[in-house]
């Protein structure tokens, strides 16, 4: 693992974007293990799929 040798120079455009990063969400994620973070992603995907399905059905019902 050689990552510690990589230096990331500040980029002015990215610095602007950093101001809008919600660190409260990130801090919650950093409390989790890698596996817990991925499991959370799966749960979110399931929610998204279910919402898409429900929205499709509701939209079709109106047509």
């Amino acid at each position: 693992m050689k990552d510690k040798t990589i230096k990331i120079e500040p980029d002015p455009v990215i610095e602007v974007y950093k101001k809008d990063v919600d660190m409260t969400l990130i801090d919650e994620n950093l409390k989790l293990s890698v596996e817990e973070r991925l499991r959370k992603l799966f749960r979110m995907q399931e929610l998204i799929e279910e919402l898409r399905r429900a929205t499709r059905e509701a939209t079709n019902d109106r047509l």
Partner: peptide, 14 residues
């Protein structure tokens, strides 16, 4: 990717 990079850099800074 700009928002994603910004987020990853904030994680790195943490």
């Amino acid at each position: 990717d700009l928002e994603s990079i910004a987020e990853l850099e904030k994680i790195m800074e943490r």
